[in-house]
Design a binder for these strands. Structure first.
Length: 845
RNA sequence: GCGGGCGUGGUGGAAUGGUAGACACACCAGACUUAAAAUCUGUUGGGCGUAUGCCCGUGGGGGUUCGAGUCCCCCCGCCCGCACCA
């Protein structure tokens, strides 16, 4: 009797797969292609359980697609630029490049024992000069196409990372990585013109049927489309107009002031001549240091003395104020305030004693606004007055649309659709990123580098002993010739946001070593990604940027039109969690303990630990289980099996030692079962062959459906069930052998090594990985008889077994004749009998 | 504040509108063993009953339906996203 020894089995099969190159993706017209991709990892140096779960899910899909006759592309790479490498260099010395490449090597070594069906020949890291050089080429093409531009702008400045952040990278007023309160600064920066595509990025979400609705909705909210109107207000104190944007033109009757941003041109002009206004504007600028403070800040304003005419009431004048709450970069930087129907405007009006005037009424309102603005709910009926009095049935959007029509018809304004989405600032004042390939020339200004001069390589000889960007203080790197006039010039020292790197890597995988960003035939063949798998945390940032890049690469001829939306299907998987174990030190501060140091709620010295409910595995809470330890204790197949079982893949899964143990026991059971069948008398006849094979076909059906619908946990439950059937079966050798070989095939996407071994031991030919997926024999799914529950008034009272093809009428007769039914009816006569063939009978009395 | 999701045994979770709790964990009992481990078998939503069985049960309340965990309305709780966006 041999034992299940995963270490030996797994190494052996991984070597075989590698030798036979069965996962190498080659273009072929013979089979349909299938591109499965998991979000590539940041090379932190160690893989964690989240990686194991993410890549196992992708691997199940990839292996299943391979077995179902697809030409599969399943690549792996490294999102390798970024701050941690520089932080490590600053903290412990060394060089970001060495740190990163060492980490990549370590993580690759940790990942390979998982037995993933990856085409490693396509591997690359975004910090490879081959990759970022092509990214520079893309940048130049985008620049030529007007998709990148430079502007002086208020930016989010992270004072800890000492760099700029995009709007998407500021979470609750704090930097997404450093957690520092973000400041506002004015800097000249490069921007991607993502806002030009806002409408399409929003509209195309509708077509992404195989994306989670949640992600589509988050993107829709982020893009923030709103329908409104731009209204020019005529100055009465002089010439000119002030253009205001409003999504509520139906409140125009109640307008009592205009508010402009402190950065508005009107404010900037007045600033030069009015010291009081200048002081206020100055105060606004000083106050605006952090996003968090801005949110809490008091609404303040100052009257400019300017006056404008009310657009629909002759002779009514409105004062123009500067308001600290008006944003310059949304709409037109100027709004009209309607205190009666907007809480913020009302607070402002009360503070500065401005008129409050109803624009409409709602049934039941007192027509007298106190401290709460009269804001109609979506479904409430609004009764308009004066100019809009005709719009009586107005609810929700109707009144707004109708008033926009009114303004347009009277040439008082223009309907406008606006977006919240801002352009993506990509400049970062960091070393470890892709250099922006432009040159600053005293004579020619900002000049794009020539393509033949690419790649602009990062210098290796840099120092991190002082804060700031080492490229700025490098003695020679900046020096270059102007690509336009040839005179000495200086390179741009900003590098690109690392989200740029991850916005097109999926396209690069289709021709990873080409000397152009993509190759037309390869991109056309392999794109789109058929199934993309990753964390919900990328719902906005990475996925929105990638959708923009696909469009931009289409415009610049690097991707086909068909790749407009690059990810056909998206799956967002849950996290791996673990309980947290803590004790307290003498100052009552928590001390955390690794799960491996805790047995039955106690440390090895007998100290009891407090158990805190399961949370995302994190080093700081020490609630981590190292995949390497699990693999060496139980093997990769056990780890893979466990992360897929118990919880649906979109939800979190809690790692438990007992669960991992159970997974290992099950795989051992399969091994033992395989041994038993191998040693059976080959000729002996058994009993129940048909029952076993019928259960087998049910299992094929259920597992196939499970995998195709991401119901991995359900598929695994069925595999448990069928294993139990096979274990108890008294069927003959041939049937049992067929059953275990099919079981191995069905398990092969999850536990590929064990599956190969069972397959070979049972005399299967070739590799299970490339053997066609088992087919369901539909005839085997239908049984001759069927057991149906009988309900009386919806309560289950009896059960009958009848031939599967029995007519409804016959079933009804049999049901009503049943002993238990007769007893339950107790002489009452049925009013109605509902027979759902093969399902249920309900007798209504 | 706005938008979305979720709520099922001791636990993780199953259930195309059709027998709620599959499968797994944990617990308990039994077999094997001198014993333990390992392995195998069985029980396990609550209540009543010797028992065939009966009653209750998917956060709470109402509704649609022959039939609701599932669909609709209201409420409660939790989670997530967005928010000075005019």
């Amino acid at each position: 009797m041999t034992r299940y020894t995963p270490a030996e089995i797994e190494a052996r099969w991984q070597a075989t797969w590698a030798k036979d190159e069965i996962f190498k993706a080659v273009r072929s017209a013979d089979k349909p292609k299938y591109y499965v991709l998991e979000m590539f990892p940041y090379p932190s140096g160690r893989i964690h359980m989240g990686h194991v779960r993410n890549y196992t899910m992708g691997d199940v899909i990839a292996r299943y697609k391979l077995a179902t006759g697809h030409n599969v592309l399943h690549p792996m790479g490294w999102d390798a630029f970024g701050m941690p490498a520089e932080n490590a260099a600053m903290a412990i010395g060394g060089h970001p490049k060495d740190w990163t490449y060492n980490n990549i090597k370590d993580m690759r070594d940790q990942m390979k024992p998982l037995g993933l069906s990856i085409d490693w020949s396509r591997e690359f890291a975004t910090c490879d000069v081959d990759y970022y050089g092509q990214q520079q080429a893309l940048f130049l093409d985008f620049l030529k196409a007007g998709l990148v531009y430079r502007k002086n702008a208020q930016v989010n400045w992270d004072p800890i990372d000492m760099t700029v952040l995009a709007n998407e990278q500021v979470i609750d007023g704090k930097g997404w990585r450093s957690g520092a309160e973000v400041e506002r600064r004015e800097l000249t920066q490069w921007f991607f013109k993502i806002s030009d595509m806002a409408g399409d990025l929003k509209d195309a979400l509708d077509g992404l049927d195989n994306w989670p609705a949640k992600v589509r909705l988050m993107q829709e909210n982020w893009i923030g489309e709103s329908r409104g109107i731009e209204i020019p207000f005529q100055r009465t104190d002089g010439d000119g107009t002030i253009l205001c944007y409003s999504t509520r033109p139906d409140t125009m009757r109640g307008a009592s002031f205009i508010a402009v941003s402190p950065d508005h041109p009107v404010a900037k002009t007045l600033e030069t001549t009015h010291p009081d206004l200048a002081a206020f504007i100055d105060e606004c600028r000083k106050m605006d240091t952090t996003e968090a403070a801005m949110e809490k800040a008091e609404k303040k304003g100052i009257d400019t003395g300017l006056r404008v005419a009310h657009p629909i009431y002759d002779g009514v004048e409105l004062p123009v104020w500067i308001g600290n709450f008006v944003l310059m970069d949304y709409g037109t930087g100027a709004v009209f305030g309607c205190p009666a129907h907007d809480q913020r405007d009302l607070d402002f009006a009360r503070k500065y004693v401005l008129p409050v005037q109803n624009a409409f009424h709602m049934p039941g309102d007192t027509a007298e606004v106190g401290t709460d603005a009269l804001v109609p709910a979506k479904t409430e009926t609004i009764v308009y007055i004066d100019h809009f009095a005709g719009i009586t049935e107005a609810t929700g959007q109707h009144g707004i649309d109708a008033t926009i029509d009114y303004f347009e018809a009277h040439k008082l304004g223009t309907g406008q659709t606006k977006y919240r989405l801002r352009d993506w600032g990509l400049s970062r004042q960091r070393y470890w990123g892709c250099p922006i390939p432009v040159v600053h020339c005293d004579d020619c200004g900002v000049v794009p580098e020539k393509k033949e001069n690419l790649p602009i390589e990062l210098p290796y000889d840099v120092s991190f002993d002082v804060p700031g960007n080492p490229l700025d203080r490098h003695p020679t790197w900046r020096n270059c010739a102007c690509p336009s006039c040839g005179k000495p010039a200086k390179r741009e020292t900003d590098t690109m946001d690392t989200f740029v790197d991850s916005s097109w890597y999926f396209a690069r995988f289709t021709s990873p070593h080409a000397d152009t960003p993509t190759v037309q035939e390869d991109a056309a063949y392999w794109m789109n990604v058929d199934q993309y798998i990753g964390g919900i945390e990328h719902a906005i940032l990475h996925l929105l940027y990638s959708r923009f890049f696909a469009r931009a690469m289409e415009v610049t001829g690097h991707l086909p039109k068909s790749a407009h939306e690059p990810f056909n299907a998206l799956f967002t998987q849950g996290m791996v969690t673990h309980e947290i174990y803590q004790t307290r030190d003498d100052k009552n501060r928590p001390v955390y303990h690794l799960p491996e140091d805790v047995t039955d709620g106690k440390l090895t010295d007998g100290t009891e630990v407090e158990t805190i409910p399961s949370a995302k595995m994190s080093k700081s809470k020490k609630n981590v289980v190292d995949p390497i330890n699990i693999i060496s204790a139980y093997g990769a197949d056990t780890a893979r099996w466990f992360v897929l079982s118990d919880s649906p893949p979109e939800r979190d899964v809690e790692w438990t030692a007992s669960g991992a143990e159970a997974a290992f026991k099950h795989l051992t059971r399969i091994w033992t079962l395989c041994e038993r069948i191998s040693t059976m008398d080959k000729d002996a006849k058994g009993t129940g062959d048909t029952d076993l094979l019928r259960a087998m076909h049910m299992c094929i059906h259920d597992v196939t459906t499970g995998i195709e619908s991401f119901g991995f946990n359900a598929a695994i439950a069925k595999l448990y069930g069928f294993t139990a059937v096979l274990q108890k079966s008294k069927a003959g050798h041939a049937a049992q052998r067929e059953a275990i070989m099919t079981l191995a095939q069905l398990m092969s996407p999850m536990t590929p090594h064990l599956a190969e071994d069972v397959w070979t031991r049972q005399g299967g030919t070739g590799l299970i990985a490339t053997t066609p997926w088992p087919q369901v024999d539909d005839a085997m799914l239908v049984s001759d008889t069927v057991t149906m529950p009988i309900q009386i008034n919806g309560k289950r009272r009896a059960e009958i077994t009848v031939p599967a093809d029995m007519s409804k009428e016959e079933v009804e007769k049999v049901a009503l004749a049943d002993q238990a039914v007769v007893k339950s009816l107790d002489g009452a006569s049925p009013k109605k009998v509902i027979v759902v063939p093969g399902r249920i009978v309900n007798v209504v009395v």
